[in-house]
Design a protein around this nucleic acid. Structure first.
Lengths: 214, 214
DNA sequence: TAGATTGTTAATCGATTAACAATC
DNA sequence: TAGATTGTTAATCGATTAACAATC
């Protein structure tokens, strides 16, 4: 049971903490203080301590934080102690990139199937993962534990497919289509990825630098 | 010249405004009030007006905002009135996805070359765009106007390549590698994309829903 | 023990929301 | 003109930073 609502700003930073702690772990660093970590991450030590204390006291006065312990605890908070099976709807280039990218599997998000409308792709495999007809989606979802569906299909079909997935019991959607998916079902979690928004933010920064030197 | 520093929160929303206004435009909507737009975007009307007034008064009392005008003005703020040539370092699946995705080109970000270390790829084309040897990078950058370099290579080489690009005069980097690129050069703009962070945030939400129903 | 560093409360800062006069 | 809706100031809310007592 959640006691307090964790702010979005804190949640956004969690994966970043996990990443930096993972790097420290790889570098055989055993302990770190909030102050040292703040240097690396370009945050304040105060913010790090505040953030962590949303979830409990993971440190020790006079010592700091044990890197492995903190890493693993944040992993648990992020749900990385459990495997989440993923399917991808739309077996295009982005889907290939996702399924070929080992990191996601390492983090506990294996792709176990891909779906497309293109007949030519049916039965082919990408990185060992089979592409099915979208018509087989219902059966597949019923016969397998699906935790996450990634949508990498044209945005025209996104809402329909999303609704279909939800009605099949899929509880979380990683949406790469260029709409803000918003199903009014509090049970379903949606993460919208907008690569073009990211590119536009970059462009904004370029444009504003140019204006500054005018 | 920039008069006031625009907050990051505002900048993050700009591409979203642009996207929604583009949709309205496609639907032949001519005018919209901050109130109507706030309904669609799940923001407050007040916030929309505040956000826009960071850049000037685009509306008209009693009328609202002209959709096309506002769309185009936000486009200009985002620098979308100019073309930004892009190269991609690392010609893997993600690079293919980017270069095949028409939207980026439509927004004014054509990819004009890709670079890799894999000999087998040299001279091949993806969506009509040629893959070059990384050894040809210097010449290519000198002979073409390169506004943005997208990094889709292993993170081990990211910093080295980024420094090389900067020394060649490339001023902005769209980084997909799993490090936070931070060059201490205020002249260079970096946008870090962390897909695994996005996936972990999704996972966090899944985990916290599960806890709630415990 | 003395020194270091956390956990946590209080202060500050910034962003969002509310309100309303200006004005189309 | 009357109604609608902006632009903008003021109020509120939330997030970040500072400070420090607790404690390892």
């Amino acid at each position: 049971m959640m006691e307090t609502k964790i702010s979005k700003a804190v949640i956004r930073r969690l994966p970043r903490y996990y990443r930096y702690l993972g790097d420290l772990l790889n570098n055989k660093v055993e302990r770190i203080s909030s102050n040292e970590l703040s240097d690396k991450m370009k945050l304040t030590a105060s913010q790090i301590r505040q953030d962590l204390n949303n979830f409990g006291g993971f440190g020790q006065q006079g010592y700091g934080y044990n890197v492995r312990y903190l890493h693993d605890e944040i992993g648990k908070i992020l749900g990385l102690n459990e495997t989440h099976n993923m399917i991808i709807i739309g077996a295009g280039n982005l889907a290939s990139a996702i399924v070929r990218y080992d990191k996601f599997e390492q983090l506990g998000f294996p792709t176990i199937g891909m779906f497309d409308v293109n007949k030519d792709l049916f039965g082919t495999t990408i990185n060992g993962i089979k592409v099915y007809s979208i018509d087989e989606l219902d059966d597949f979802v019923k016969n397998n534990q699906i935790d996450i569906a990634a949508l990498t299909l044209p945005k025209e079909n996104a809402i329909e497919v999303a609704n279909r997935l939800v009605s099949l019991g899929v509880k979380s959607i990683w949406n790469f289509t260029h709409i803000d998916l918003e199903l009014n079902d509090d049970d379903v979690v949606i993460e919208n990825v907008h690569l073009s928004d990211s590119l536009m933010r970059l462009s904004y920064e370029i444009a504003s630098r140019e204006k500054m030197t005018d």
